Simulated assay, not measured.
Amino acid sequence: MALWLVFCPGFVAAVDLNTATAEQLQQIKGIGPRTAQLILEERQRGGDFDSLQNLADRVKGIGPKKIGTMEQSGLTAGASKKPAASSVAPRPGVDIRKKP
Rank of each mutant, 00 (worst) to 15 (best):
M1A: 14
M1F: 12
A2L: 15
A2D: 13
W4K: 11
L5V: 06
C8E: 13
C8I: 06
C8R: 13
F11D: 00
V12W: 04
A14H: 02
A14E: 11
A20N: 04
E23R: 08
Q24Y: 03
L25C: 04
Q26H: 00
K29R: 07
G30P: 06
I31K: 03
I31R: 03
G32C: 07
R34E: 06
T35E: 02
A36H: 05
Q37G: 14
Q37R: 15
L38S: 13
I39D: 12
I39A: 12
I39Y: 11
E42A: 08
R43G: 01
R43E: 02
Q44D: 13
R45W: 00
G46S: 15
G47S: 10
D48A: 15
D48S: 14
F49H: 10
Q53N: 01
N54S: 15
N54P: 00
D57N: 02
V59K: 01
V59L: 00
V59A: 00
K60R: 14
K60T: 13
G61H: 08
G61D: 08
G63E: 04
P64S: 11
P64Y: 02
P64K: 13
K65T: 05
K66R: 15
G68F: 02
G68A: 03
E71R: 15
E71Q: 15
G74F: 13
L75S: 02
T76E: 09
A77D: 01
A79D: 08
K82T: 09
K82F: 07
K82A: 09
A84R: 12
A84S: 12
A84H: 10
A84M: 07
V88D: 05
V88E: 08
A89N: 11
R91P: 10
G93D: 05
I96S: 12
I96H: 10
I96L: 12
R97A: 09
K98M: 06
K99N: 03
K99L: 05
P100E: 04
